Amino acid sequence: AKKFGVAEELKNKLTHNRDEIRFLSERKLHGYLAEGDELPGLPGWKVIETPGHAQSHLSFYRESDGVMIAGDHLLAKISPNPLMEPPLLPGGMRPRPLLQYNASLQKLLDFPISTVYSGHGSEVAGDEVADLIQYRFDRQHNRAMQVKSMLQDKPLSVFEVCQQLFPKVYLQEVGLTLSETVGQLDYLEDLGEVQTEIQSGVILYSIA
């Protein structure tokens, strides 16, 4: 939170605003699924790793008829929020979820898909998948260019960009809006459109 320049009075919302945490299971894992694995008890269904919306997000694909269960990865009407998560190993580099999400979308184009069943809303017909993914890429790029324009006058922290990008909701949804903002800046940095410097422990972004 400090590196992103988050206002002191909002830092608690990043760690203590989820009452639902008491419902999370504390049971230990006894196995795992990885890319290409067959789903136990469901012959013909293979695991496709699709990180982005979450680091652990999986989709399931049945080659025999081209059906994909995509969860929150590909939705007909909205683009899921790539959520910030801590590094897998303490002290490691933080994930860059929007870049992961884009790569996971690109991966879907390698599969002959007949129907995508999503976690929200209606299914996506196979002949619409490529156009929908391109639409997501175009919308994403245009939004990132909007963020870049915010840096015209002076370098800004993640939080300062977040305030401009989500002026009406950032106070209520600090985690979600910061996740979206960081994703846009990661995307711009990956393209070489922005650069960073650190001042007083805060990362500042400026146009490269």
Rank of each mutant, 00 (worst) to 15 (best):
K2W: 12
K2F: 13
G5N: 06
V6T: 15
E9C: 07
K11Q: 15
H16T: 10
E20K: 06
R22F: 09
R22E: 11
F23D: 13
S25M: 04
L33M: 10
A34E: 12
G36E: 08
G36T: 10
D37A: 07
V47T: 09
I48Q: 00
T50A: 01
G52M: 01
G52H: 01
A54Y: 11
Q55R: 11
Q55C: 00
F60G: 05
Y61G: 05
E63D: 12
S64Q: 12
D65S: 03
I69C: 02
G71E: 14
D72M: 13
L74F: 09
L75H: 01
K77G: 03
S79K: 04
S79W: 01
M84V: 04
E85N: 04
P86M: 09
P87F: 04
L88A: 14
M93E: 15
M93H: 11
R94F: 12
R94E: 14
R94D: 09
P95R: 07
P95K: 04
P95E: 03
R96D: 07
P97Y: 08
L98K: 11
N102T: 07
S104H: 02
Q106C: 00
Q106K: 09
K107V: 01
L109R: 02
D110A: 00
D110Y: 00
F111S: 02
I113K: 00
I113T: 05
I113F: 00
S114W: 06
V116F: 04
V116C: 07
Y117R: 07
Y117K: 09
G121S: 11
V124R: 00
G126H: 07
Q134Y: 02
Q134E: 12
F137S: 02
R139A: 05
R139V: 10
H141V: 05
N142P: 00
Q146F: 12
S149V: 05
M150R: 08
M150K: 07
S157Y: 10
F159R: 01
C162D: 14
Q163N: 00
Q164F: 03
Q164K: 15
Q164H: 14
L165H: 04
K168F: 09
K168S: 14
Y170N: 06
E173S: 13
V174E: 08
G175T: 04
L176R: 13
T177C: 12
T177Y: 07
L178F: 11
L178C: 09
S179H: 10
T181E: 10
Q184V: 07
Q184S: 14
E189Q: 06
E193F: 13
V194W: 09
Q195T: 06
Q195F: 01
T196K: 12
I198P: 00
V202G: 01
L204N: 06
S206R: 13
S206L: 08
